[in-house]
């Protein structure tokens, strides 16, 4: 148990601490690219601290479900964070679930959040829930198919095993099936984390919101948990992408030296992917809601092509 304890604590701390920072970096870079000064990168920490200390106002119509949701969401995303290989190929919870459990747990958090959107009897919340569930429903096949593609190559749904297999191939990033699956998952990432072509995280118009509309009635401590979970989800999905497709620098075990080196590589890769996200966000306009299915079906077709090419280029 002891050898597993330190990695578990380390990765828990890493997920909790790194997630707000990553969100802050993306926000800051986006502002820079738009010729604004932007908030400092550690602004999300201040926000969380402030939310945690603030008084809460709960809707008179809300039920216990509304209070339970932040905890369900926070815990489910945190557990996903422990299932994804970050510094080492061996995530702490590797026996407790692989790719399918990750997708399932993210869906669990979303399910409760969507219910909490309906709970306070507001039209905005319902609208957010409806749109969130719609978009995630059409994003899910693309996500599953691209994960199937890498899982088939590795012969396993165990994420550690997948990363290990890819790390073992010398030119994996040139493999067409890998590139196509990467492209598909990148689109899914934009949809799942509420990024610009799909949702605008910075909008203040209720009618345009998706994620923000669902959490409109939250305040104080609960809002802190939800915002934190959202940034952790973003971190986890980005980790999944960078480590599956570019496993360079990832450690094979949990020794201090290799983990330190892996941390450097990990942060570097995350920053690169954040740069890509920021570029996409800045150079694209938000799509109309009913154009989003087109984007996501493009992702699905990319994933299907990825699958076909594993078959063809074997």
């Amino acid at each position: 148990m002891t050898p597993l304890l330190i990695p578990t604590l380390a990765q828990t701390a890493l997920v909790l601490v790194l997630a707000p920072l990553l969100a802050g970096v993306i926000k800051n870079w986006k502002a820079k690219l738009q010729n604004r000064r932007g908030p400092p990168v550690w602004q999300p920490y201040f926000d969380l601290l402030k939310f945690l200390r603030k008084d809460m106002v709960l809707s008179e119509h809300a039920s216990w479900l509304f209070s339970a949701t932040p905890y369900v969401l926070f815990l489910s995303v945190l557990i996903v964070g422990l299932m994804v290989p970050m510094l080492s190929e061996q995530p702490p919870l590797k026996w407790f679930g692989g790719a399918l459990a990750v997708i399932g747990l993210l869906a669990l958090g979303r399910f409760f959040l969507a219910l909490a959107g309906l709970d306070p009897a507001s039209a905005f919340g319902g609208m957010g829930s409806s749109r969130e569930m719609t978009i995630s429903a059409i994003a899910e096949p693309a996500m599953m198919l691209s994960i199937f593609t890498v899982a088939i190559t590795a012969g396993s749904t165990n994420l550690g095993q997948i990363v290990h297999t890819v790390a073992g191939q010398s030119s994996a990033f040139l493999n067409p099936s890998h590139l196509l699956a990467f492209a598909a998952l990148f689109i899914v990432l934009l949809a799942e984390t509420g990024r610009v072509p799909v949702d605008n995280p910075a909008t203040h118009l209720e009618l345009r919101m998706i994620h923000e509309a669902m959490v409109l009635e939250y305040s104080g401590r609960y809002l802190a948990l939800i915002e934190w979970s959202a940034s952790m989800k973003q971190l986890v999905l980005m980790t999944l992408i960078v480590n599956i497709f570019f496993p360079a620098g990832i450690a094979a075990d949990w020794s201090a030296a290799s983990a330190g080196r892996a941390l450097l590589f990990f942060v570097g890769k995350l920053l690169l992917l954040s740069g890509a996200v920021v570029l996409v966000e800045t150079t694209n306009a938000k799509l109309r809601l009913f154009r989003v299915p087109d984007l996501l079906s493009a992702a699905f077709i990319l994933a299907a092509l990825a699958l076909l090419s594993t078959f063809l280029f074997k």
Binding site: F111, L115, A121, T134, S136, A137, A303
Partner: peptide, 25 residues
Amino acid sequence: GALLALTGALAAACFVKAFGITFLA
């Protein structure tokens, strides 16, 4: 498998509707 994923996600959407509209708000 991908169709099953679509089915599962749509089922989740449907039960957000069924539970949310019937029991909440």
